[in-house]
Amino acid sequence: MKPDNVILEAKNLRTYFHLDEGILKAVDGVDLTIKEGKTLGIVGESGSGKSVTSQSLLRIVPNTGTVEGEILLHQRKNGKTEVLNLVDLAPHGKEIRAIRGGEISMIFQEPMKAFSPIHTIGNQITEAILLHNTQDPAEAKGIAIDTLRKVGMSNPEQRFNEFPHQLSGGMRQRAMIAMALACNPSILIADEPTTALDVTVQAQVLQLINDLKEKNGTSVIFITHDLGVIAEMCDEVAVLYLGKVVEYTDVDTLFYGALHPYTQALLHSIPTVTKRSSRLDSIEGTVPYPMNLPRGCGFYSRCKLAKAGVCNVEDVPLVEVSTGHHVRCLLVDKKEPEEAGCPHAEQ
């Protein structure tokens, strides 16, 4: 058995894009640990590096990007655990293609763009099944229809022969989940899977992912900007800002004992019943462009607690302040967890 049931690790993961203007550091030294049957949430504003992190784990970043560091996949073979570094694999080689869709699958953010518009839903799902599970087309079709049924697709036999534009948004998302789960992956990456859905369908999709995780023991990496979804779905949370993890802890500690000013600001921007008569807190400014950044904390220009000569001098390391709770802030030892609690804590 692997230590702590770890199934995937990212160590000092760096994804840089080499552009004419310079080097864009989309992911800059990220460390993540995914455990069997658990859900790791990755949260942050747009431009924080969430989606590029997920693309890096699958080695599907655009050609202008380079992936460095370690992505360690723990595989169980013949009763033994083997560790494979995905960074060492050719991004278009047979080894990584066997892992994509087979051991690690991904639910993409916008199914209408992720699906091919000129192939039926069934054709696209069976393609993965034929690659990873069986070479029998009839058996592959049966698995695809059964998977569509499991994700709650109405009349799966008919939907199997339909094109993406013939399905509603909720049905397309269910078809995307079915394609990701058709080969029973060990790890499921969900990249903001409910962004374009209405509230009712969003709740159904989240419940579906939770149910499938419980039944199959699948590990989930859930990427979102919605802290409400994080509270419902995740066991551990990594807060990303400018391609770096600024806080990493379990979900309860995040909501009731967050220490990083960025995490606190995100929590205090959540609307609550008791704050109806007052304006919501907001984080002034925007996420800086991750190129030619000055030294120091990346959140320095937007942080209300920042101190000149302290926070903007050297790059800030990620430090474990308590068991399992990591924070990237030089002022963290001057704050108490109860002062940083979630605005929902007293409700």
Rank of each mutant, 00 (worst) to 15 (best):
K2E: 15
A10L: 11
L19G: 02
G22Y: 00
I23M: 00
K25I: 05
V27G: 09
G29Q: 09
G29V: 10
V30N: 08
G37D: 04
G37E: 03
G41A: 00
T53F: 03
L58V: 09
G65Q: 01
V67F: 08
E70M: 11
H92T: 15
G93V: 15
R97G: 00
K113N: 13
F115K: 01
I118Y: 00
I129P: 13
G142P: 04
L148C: 04
M153I: 14
N155W: 06
R159C: 06
E162S: 09
P164Q: 01
H165F: 12
Q166S: 02
G170S: 05
G170T: 03
M176N: 00
I177H: 03
I177Q: 03
A178I: 14
A180D: 05
A180R: 02
L188Y: 01
T194Q: 07
T195W: 11
T200S: 10
T200Y: 08
L206G: 07
L208S: 04
I209K: 04
E214A: 06
K215F: 10
N216A: 00
V220A: 03
F222I: 11
V229S: 02
A231W: 14
C234D: 11
G243F: 06
V245M: 04
V246L: 01
Y248H: 07
T249V: 09
D250L: 13
D252K: 13
T253G: 00
F255A: 08
L259M: 10
S269H: 12
K275V: 15
G285I: 10
V287P: 14
V319C: 00
E320M: 06
S322Q: 08
S322M: 02
T323V: 12
G324T: 13
V332F: 04
E338N: 02
G341F: 05
